[in-house]
C-alpha cells in the first residue's frame, strides 16, 4: 500500500533556515544541511526546502545547499522558491533535488509546467498554490502570498495539472501559522478535482491534524514550525498515527548499525 507522507518544510532565506529549529541536538539551528540530517534521522518521509528570500543572487546558495544536503541525506527532496525557468529546474534536479515546486512563475507562465514536465517528467514538477478563502471558494495568491490574482484555486489547479504538474502543494493562507489545523474543506474539494497527489500545508497544530488531512484526501501533509519548535516530535507523530491505523510508514526498522 502506498503510504501517506509526513513532510517537514525548511523555510530558508539567504541560505539559512528561518525561525531556526529548537533542538538541542543541533549545533547550528540555522544550518539547513544539519537540520535536514536531523529530520532524516527522526524519520521524515521527505523534505521540502523553500527559499522565501527568493532573490536571484541567492539562487546559487540554494543550489549549493541542495547539493550538500543530497550528498548526506538520502531521502526525497523538493526545492522551491523563485525557480523561474527550465534551466533552473534542471540545475535543481542535477544538484540532487527530486522535485521542484513552482508557484508565481507558473502563474505568470503556465507553459513552464508543460516544458518542465516534457523535459524531466511530470513526477518532478510540483505546483505550489497559496490560497485564501472567499465565501464558498478560494482565491489564488502569488509572490509568497502577497498579491491576490484573478484565479480561482480549483480552476487553476485543474489547469496546472493539465499543463503538466505531477503534484500539488496546497497552502491555506488562512490557516498558515495558526495551528488550528489544515483547511479540511479545501483539501476535500481539491482532492476531488485533482488527479495527482496532493500535499496539505498550513495550519498543522496537533498530531490529529495530520490524520484529518489524510482522511480528507491529502496524500502528504507538510509542516514547518510545528516540527521546528518541537511542538510535535516526528517520531511520536509517526508512532501515534501508525498505531492509530493511519496508512503511514511504520516507525523505522532496526537495520545493521554499520550504515551511515
Amino acid at each position: 500500500m502506498l503510504k501517506k507522507r509526513i513532510i517537514p518544510c525548511l523555510d530558508m532565506k539567504g541560505g539559512r533556515v528561518v525561525k531556526g529549529v529548537c533542538f538541542e541536538a543541533l549545533r547550528d539551528a540555522g544550518d539547513p544541511v544539519e537540520t535536514a540530517a536531523l529530520y532524516d534521522r527522526l524519520g521524515a518521509d521527505e523534505l521540502c526546502f523553500l527559499d522565501i528570500g527568493a532573490s536571484v543572487e541567492n539562487r546559487g546558495t540554494l543550489f549549493e545547499i541542495v547539493e550538500r544536503t543530497a550528498s548526506r541525506v538520502f531521502l526525497p527532496l523538493t526545492v522551491g522558491g523563485g525557480i523561474r525557468s527550465v534551466e533552473e529546474i534542471r540545475r535543481a534536479l542535477n544538484c540532487g533535488a527530486d522535485k521542484v515546486s513552482l508557484n508565481s512563475a507558473a502563474l505568470a507562465n503556465p507553459s513552464l509546467l508543460t516544458e518542465g514536465a516534457l523535459r524531466f517528467g511530470s513526477q518532478c514538477i510540483v505546483l505550489a498554490v497559496d490560497v485564501k478563502r472567499e465565501g464558498g471558494s478560494w482565491r489564488v495568491y502569488s509572490h509568497g502570498g502577497t498579491r491576490p490574482t484573478s484565479r480561482d484555486a480549483i480552476e487553476w489547479i485543474v489547469e496546472g495539472v493539465r499543463a503538466g504538474a505531477g503534484e500539488i502543494l496546497l497552502t491555506s493562507m488562512d490557516r498558515d501559522g495558526t495551528g488550528e489545523g489544515y483547511d479540511i474543506a479545501l483539501l476535500e474539494t481539491v482532492s476531488r478535482a485533482a488527479e495527482v497527489p496532493l500535499i496539505a500545508s498550513g495550519g498543522a497544530g496537533t498530531m490529529d491534524d495530520f490524520r484529518k488531512a489524510f482522511d480528507a484526501g491529502a496524500d502528504a501533509a507538510l509542516a514547518a514550525s510545528l516540527f521546528h519548535f518541537g511542538t510535535v516530535d516526528l517520531r511520536d507523530l509517526r508512532r501515534t498515527l501508525y498505531n492509530g491505523g493511519a496508512p503511514v510508514r511504520p516507525p523505522l526498522p532496526d537495520l545493521p548499525e554499520d550504515l551511515p
Binding site: L2, K3, Q123, L255
Partner: peptide, 21 residues
C-alpha cells in the same frame, strides 16, 4: 493517481543476497 509517488512496501517473494538484513 499516476504517477505513484511515495513510500510503498516491497514484499519479499524470493530470497537473495540483496535482501540481507
Amino acid at each position: 493517481k499516476v504517477p505513484q509517488i511515495g513510500w510503498n512496501e516491497v514484499r519479499r517473494t524470493i530470497d537473495h543476497p540483496l535482501w540481507r538484513g
